[in-house]
Design a binder for these strands. Structure first.
Length: 332
DNA sequence: AACTGTCACAACCGCATTTGC
DNA sequence: AGCAAATGCGGTTGTGACAGT
């Protein structure tokens, strides 16, 4: 308020006698030779929608995933086309949830819708992860030079990442029909038993040596505030350097497991579930993860408390995953 | 032809952060 | 360390093109 314009526009015709800032902007958004002009492809549209669901109005971050498109162009395209498109489809362009999903409605149908919507967000996150990998390209960023352990032979195929929640669920619930997860209103892996301990500290310590111990995140929910959530997002989106692959058909070898573990110990980050976990943990000295942090990532504002709790259980089970690197509080 | 409304998008504004001295 | 300038970013506005009346 009260700040004067960057240059004196008095008597100037718009577009002429530009100041330095105007010139820079015009170059960046219009004149630069490597800018792709013209219509957005369907794939670009989908990418924007998926990334917007994950990142919100962080146009510059979204633009990094669309080569030769500027943040300004994407922002304009979102405001003039995509917002309307989603609205027409009955989807709230802000929350990316169906508009008829009433907050606080605890009916069975509502839970199913919430769960399906939530699954879509998981999928968005997975696609975003893939996008990052495509942007980064080869060589495989998984193997960092400063890791102490010798890298194992590369896993033989590039897909799927363990961010694929459906595959993770299928792996951890052998023999179960994947549809039961959604129809029963369950989040992935909710049926897997957990053994939360009473003593949170003991529980964290147990994780040093026991992969079968589930972390107790449901305590200390009140510790988290908006600032930590923002930093959490930065941890997730900003510093990931690789992708961590595992599948049921092709589980990790001991060598892989040891290598990943050493990377965690050395502070490297992965994209995928472990990366999310690391992001959660970035600002949480005591090592607990709570609902608010979960929601900072996935945006669970419309989820009922039941579903929300399931999601935290889901994270617990992810950490309890057979091939997840062991973690302890010293990594946080 | 004149007017009005809508649309697309380049450009602007102000704040926050980074950079250079 | 402190300051000013430069830069980055997201929200908003200005303006030309076009369609409808």
């Amino acid at each position: 308020m009260g700040r004067s314009p960057c240059c004196d526009k008095m008597g100037l015709k718009k577009g002429l006698r530009r100041c330095g800032k105007s010139c820079r902007l015009r170059w960046a958004n219009y004149l630069r030779p490597d800018i792709k002009r013209g219509k957005f492809s369907l794939q670009e549209e989908e990418t924007i929608i998926q990334l917007h669901a994950l990142l919100g109005n962080r146009w510059s971050a979204i633009a990094t995933h669309l080569p030769k498109r500027t943040d300004n162009e994407i922002k304009n395209y979102w405001n003039t086309h995509l917002k309307k498109k989603l609205t027409k489809m009955g989807i709230d362009p802000t929350t990316h949830k169906p508009k008829n999903l009433a907050v606080g409605d605890c009916s069975h149908q509502s839970k199913e819708i919430a769960n399906i919507s939530h699954m879509a967000q998981w999928e968005s996150a997975r696609l975003e992860a893939e996008a990052r990998l495509v942007v980064r390209g080869s060589p495989n960023p998984l193997f960092h030079s400063h890791s102490s352990a010798a890298p194992p032979p590369p896993l033989p195929r590039p897909r799927p990442p363990c961010l694929d929640i459906l595959k993770v669920w299928a792996w951890t619930n052998p023999g179960k029909d994947i549809s039961t997860m959604i129809l029963n209103g369950h989040s992935p892996m909710i049926d897997q038993p957990s053994n939360n301990n009473d003593d949170n500290n003991n529980n964290n310590n147990n994780n040093n040596n026991n992969n079968n111990t589930t972390w107790n995140f449901s305590e200390n929910v009140g510790l988290f505030n908006g600032e930590s959530s923002v930093t959490t997002m930065k941890g997730i989106m900003g510093n990931s350097t690789g992708l961590h692959y595992t599948t049921a058909a092709e589980p990790m070898t001991t060598a892989h497991h040891d290598y990943y573990s050493s990377c965690y110990m050395s502070g490297d980050s992965f994209l995928g579930f472990p990366s999310f976990v690391e992001g959660f943990a970035a600002d949480i000295p005591s090592g607990e993860i709570g609902y608010s942090d979960y929601n900072a990532v996935v945006g669970g504002g419309c989820l009922s408390s039941v579903v929300e709790e399931s999601n935290v259980n889901c994270w617990n089970n992810v950490l309890n995953f057979p091939t997840s690197p062991p973690m302890d509080s010293s990594m946080l």
